[in-house]
Amino acid sequence: MEATVGEQERILASPWGGGTNPFGTSWGKFMMWVFIVSDALTFAGFIVAYGFMRATAPAWPAQDEVFSMGLITFMTFALISSSCVMAIAVGAAPQGRRSEAVKYLWLTILGGTIFLGSQAYEWAHFIDEGYRPWFNPVMPEVPQFPAAFYVMTGFHGFHVFTGLVLLLYTVIRAHMGKYTGDRVEIAGLYWHFIDVVWVFIFAFFYLL
């Protein structure tokens, strides 16, 4: 019995004994990480499905003939820059530098809005040219191409939109003085995740 009691004490004293944070984070931040991991699996499924479709397709269009790579590079620049200023906002918030955090949060929102606006422009152009999720006007034998484009960039764009809503909520709360460094960091984690997903889409869909 004594050994059992000792074992119980050992467990209770461990990080998993209850009453502590085994991952060393707040619950909100940890839940955001759990969400990011599960959401990354969704995008991993898309990317693998895209690879499969592309490997089995009879041909594949040259991306630089379909898309404006200057625009895509500019969009990437906007998103990477917004990630950088978001990181600065996350650094300023817990130190009580509210006006600085707010300023960089607005810059992040600006970067995200530029990205989303550019994507809307790209979609409008693509739709104008007759591309549909089930039809490729240039290479009718490869409808997988526009399908992959709409699904991957569409889901990513929706995430950017959701991220902008989250950032607006965060910055409005910050203006009202009702914010904590932890909340800004949680919004930041989501925003950086959007950047990570775009890094994959940029390389695998637009460049490979």
Partner: peptide
């Protein structure tokens, strides 16, 4: 580098870092 520096994973506990590898 986005994960390590912008998402501050390099200053997180190893348990959390390992969880982020599962999607890959």
């Amino acid at each position: 580098i986005i994960g390590a520096y912008y998402m501050h994973l390099r200053s997180e506990k190893l348990d959390l870092i390992l969880i982020t590898f599962t999607p890959i």
